[in-house]
Design a protein around this nucleic acid. Structure first.
Length: 500
RNA sequence: GGGGGCGUAGCUCAGCCUGGUAGAGCAACUGACUUUUAAUCAGUAGGUCUUGGGUUCGAAUCCCAACGCCCUCACCA
């Protein structure tokens, strides 16, 4: 039998339903999200109601049939809505003939509404005993297997709509995602931060070292870049006198895809005038720890084979200390750094000092950063947007937060000296394919008007969600991760548009 | 881009090593059943084995290539 035969069976039922005079794609129906409310209501009325008796009050539920057990003149269904599941029963004796006939034509996956009293079965299962049945939408495609759900990862990502209703754990992750972001927003709003939106399409990109996506605006006939970072726009707002701002929005980077990288990802960036990167450290650890506590119930959470503890304070270690610890070299002793890199097979001959240091750091230190840990005081040349350490100008007042070997946050004491900023924009390091140092004259002009000293912070939201939901892949926390379009079927491309 | 793995019924998976023409469970269809819980019981039907080549008397199985997905390395400072 082919899929079309299975679907034909459902189409036949659709026709029979119409013959009953029923619209198989129903209308407004009260009762959404009632599964949990029904349980609460039953507890409140009479949790010890004897088997066989029913409440005098009726309840309404609307949702999807996930299990269907027809035992003759009685049908039991496991009914899911956004709040959870509840058993619904239809009895031939208690239903109008039309509703009973409709009940016999239901399939797994159909969306129904039911109205009726509550009662317990002899196994103690709370059940809504349908007195009326409303078909809200006929499902024409059989849902995934009821024990295993949908496990094929490709299908799960391509048909997330199926994944979400077939695998309750998946929906739970995205509910947590929403709650965590909501927590961040309120935490910042409570501390006087203003949420703003800055351009996602930019004539000039900057604020990070990454390859951009390009696009074109027809009316102006100009190329635009999808932003790789909102940083330079948010800092312009500091110049404008908005002293505390944040933005939660997408960045786009035209790079590889992995379990930790999606080409579009959600970044939360914030800037606090008159602060510094120490403030950003305490903000970072408190944001994440309070989110863990509020949404997941604890600051200690499992992640893969380990347990992470987000309770502040997180360890703070300097870049130089960690290089000494794991690569056993002095960061400022370049012959030693180059020798250490060479010994590990890391290319170094043609690269700038700071690039070699960074490559050595990634090879030797990063694999150990289970954390949570703040890595602070980076080599200055790697940080063209960061203020130098006044006590040691070789260092920049920057930190990155690492958890489970993932960079989850990046923060600076912001550079607000326009002359230094302009010089930094002109400095290019050998061996860096991409650089943050891209001249932005208007940004320099903004600094010339005077930007308050400030702390700035970027948090990779998707990665934080991964950590707090024990998700191994970034694709498990992004509803529709980027996939290559399926070959079959017509995909409309730019070329088609031109030919049309 | 390199390396490894996977692709069989709508879904979840066997079969491949050792070549002989396709199997199970769930879903579907028919029937029985008024307290089921992954309902049960009896019966029925369902497959271009991702695609294209090759080897062979014979390929889901062995070989090559393409496509897709996953993992990993590189890239992503």
């Amino acid at each position: 039998m082919t899929q079309s035969k299975v679907q034909q069976d459902r189409l036949d039922k659709l026709a029979k339903i119409r013959e009953l005079g029923v619209d198989p794609y129903g209308q407004k129906f009260e009762g959404q999200g009632a599964a949990v409310a029904v349980r609460a209501k039953f507890e409140a009325i009479d949790p010890k109601l004897p088997v066989g008796e029913k409440t005098t009050d009726s309840v309404r539920v609307a949702g999807r049939i996930m299990l269907y057990r027809d035992i003759g003149k009685l049908i039991f269904m496991t009914h899911h809505d956004a709040s959870g599941k509840i058993q619904v029963a239809l009895s031939k004796r208690e239903l109008a003939e039309k509703d009973w006939n409709l009940g016999r034509l239901l399939d797994l996956g159909d969306l129904i509404g039911v109205d009726g009293p509550m009662g317990l079965t002899k196994t103690g299962e709370l059940t809504v005993w349908g007195r009326s049945l409303t078909l809200l939408a006929k499902s024409l495609v059989p849902p995934p297997e009821k024990w295993h759900g949908l496990t094929d990862v490709e299908l799960r990502y391509r048909q997330r709509y199926v994944d979400l209703f077939a695998n309750p754990d998946v929906a739970a992750v995205f509910k947590k995602r929403s709650a965590i972001i909501d927590h961040f927003r309120r935490y910042l709003a409570d501390r006087g931060f203003l949420e703003v939106e800055t351009p996602m399409m930019q004539a000039q990109y900057g604020g990070a070292a990454a390859k951009p996506f390009t696009t074109h605006h027809n009316a102006l006939d100009i190329d635009l870049f999808m932003r790789i970072s909102p940083e330079l726009y948010l800092k312009r707002l500091l110049v404008g006198g908005l002293e505390r701002v944040f933005e939660i929005n997408r960045n786009f980077r035209n790079e590889g895809i992995s379990t930790r990288h999606n080409p579009e990802f959600t970044m939360m960036e914030l800037y606090q005038a008159y602060g510094d990167y120490e403030d950003m450290m305490s903000l970072t650890e408190n944001l994440v720890a309070t989110a863990a506590e509020a949404v997941c119930g604890s600051t200690k959470l499992p992640f893969g084979n380990t347990e992470l503890d987000f309770a502040p304070p997180w360890r703070r270690a300097t870049y130089a200390e960690l290089l000494r610890e794991y690569a056993e070299v002095d960061m400022f002793d370049m012959p030693a750094v180059r020798a250490a890199a060479k010994a590990r097979g890391i290319e170094e001959a043609k690269l700038a000092d700071e690039v070699v240091i960074n490559n050595l750091f990634e090879a030797t230190v990063e694999p150990h950063l289970v954390g949570p840990i703040f890595v602070k005081d980076y080599p200055a040349a790697l940080c063209p947007l960061t203020r130098r350490d006044p006590k040691d100008p070789r260092l920049a007042l920057r930190f990155e937060a690492y958890v489970a070997r993932m960079e989850i946050a990046n923060a600076y004491t912001e550079l607000n000296d326009p002359a230094v900023q302009e010089a930094n924009f002109r400095q290019q390091l050998k061996g860096q394919e991409e650089t943050m140092a891209v001249m932005d004259e208007d940004f320099v002009n903004a600094l010339q008007h005077g930007m308050p000293p400030a702390g700035g912070l970027g948090i990779g939201i998707d990665r934080v969600i991964m950590l707090l939901t024990n998700s191994a892949s970034i694709r498990d926390v992004i509803l529709f991760p980027l996939m290559r379009p399926e070959a079959k079927g017509e995909v409309r491309t730019e070329k088609d548009e031109a030919n049309a």
